[in-house]
């Protein structure tokens, strides 16, 4: 027997690449980083166009196309908004929710995805309590996946609708959006940033358009290293100081369901971080007040501020439908645009 060195290396071609090498459909929207600035502009323009579109004509755009909504967490705002968006384009929608019995007991996300695809779904809108779940679904099905919130990770459609709200406030036209559009604009995100997918998606998106984003909150909700996530972020522990610098303030609720043992003195929290009328009037009387909801009145924000003249909360909800129309239309568009390197 002779042992010899293999002189020619012949890596065998494998029948199928391993699961984690399966491609993600380029029309997915999983992270705010999925979109180049040019693509953000196109989505905003598409949202404008679809919003103005004749409703009858609009309802033919995706007539009889099939969109599945797969929701493992309860959600009123996001689910309704996506559903109305898909229906406004004429798509057939089906809701599979963990609250109804339609998610088989113990069935994996992968198998549920494969089942939905076999039933004809061409796009799946997913909300999951698990960070990264949309990538799993995208790999398993090959379908475009729209992320309606995954764990603590991301909520990209929320970041886009927040951007639309901000641009409206600043009277910036969608067609002009570029890397400098938000130069000179300072926005504070305040609250439970650690557990917030909305905060992450906004913090990833807005600095790329030139905004300065201040993250504000106590260390329990905002570790120092959060600012290292992407360029353009700064941490400010003093809410009053953050307010003085900001044209826009985005308040976040405390996510009791994700606290996992974090202890916090709520009275102290209110004293330091609540957006109340007195504080806003003194520090940022002209600032736009945003909140992705759900609001816990009297905790992170008071009724006067949430319902006040500078509140954009209703505008945010309104903007959800056009933005999500644009995302659903993009997901189901047949023109495959190559996703460029980020």
């Amino acid at each position: 027997m002779t042992l010899t060195r293999a002189t020619v290396r012949t890596p065998k071609k494998l029948s199928s690449p391993s699961f984690f090498h399966q491609p993600i459909h380029p029309h997915s929207a999983i992270s705010a980083n999925d979109f180049s600035v040019a693509e953000v502009r196109r989505i905003l323009e598409s949202a404008d166009a679809l919003e103005k579109d004749n409703p009858i004509k609009r309802a033919n755009r995706l007539a009889k196309r099939r969109v599945a909504l797969l929701f493992y967490e309860s959600s009123t705002r996001t689910r309704t908004s996506f559903e109305l968006a898909a229906k406004a384009l004429g798509a057939d929608t089906t809701l599979v929710s963990s609250l109804s019995s339609s998610i088989e007991k113990g069935e994996s996300l992968k198998d549920t995805g494969i089942t939905l695809k076999a039933l004809g779904a061409e796009c799946i809108i997913l909300r999951s309590p698990y960070s990264g779940a949309p990538y799993l679904l995208a790999r398993a099905t090959g379908l475009p996946i729209l992320n309606a919130g995954d764990g603590m990770a991301e909520h990209p459609s929320q970041a886009l609708l927040d951007l639309r709200t901000i641009l409206q406030f600043l009277a910036i036209r969608s067609s002009t959006v570029n890397e400098k559009s938000l130069r000179g604009v300072t926005l504070t995100i305040c609250g439970d940033i650690l557990h917030s997918r909305v905060a992450r998606s906004n913090a990833l998106l807005l600095p790329r358009l030139g905004a300065k984003v201040i993250l504000c909150g106590p260390p329990e909700f905002l570790p120092d290293l959060a600012a290292e996530m992407t360029p353009g972020l700064v941490i400010e522990r003093d809410f009053d100081s953050a307010l003085r610098q900001s044209q826009i303030v985005m308040m976040l609720r405390i996510q009791a369901e994700r606290l996992a043992g974090v202890q916090i003195d709520l009275d102290d929290y209110r004293t330091r971080y609540q957006a109340n009328a007195e504080r806003i009037a003194a520090r940022a009387p002209q600032a736009l007040i945003m909140h992705p909801g759900p609001i816990i009145r009297g905790m992170e924000i008071t009724a006067e501020v949430a319902d006040g003249p500078h509140s954009a909360i209703a505008n945010q909800v309104y903007n959800g439908v056009p933005i999500r129309m644009a995302l659903v239309a993009r997901a189901l568009s047949t023109v495959a645009k190559k996703r460029g390197p980020k």
Binding site: S131, G132, D150, M152, A153, E154, R200, L225, A260
Partner: peptide
């Protein structure tokens, strides 16, 4: 634990 965990929304 670290920036990457924070970015990925994982504990």
């Amino acid at each position: 634990a670290g920036v990457l965990a924070f970015r990925l929304g994982l504990r």
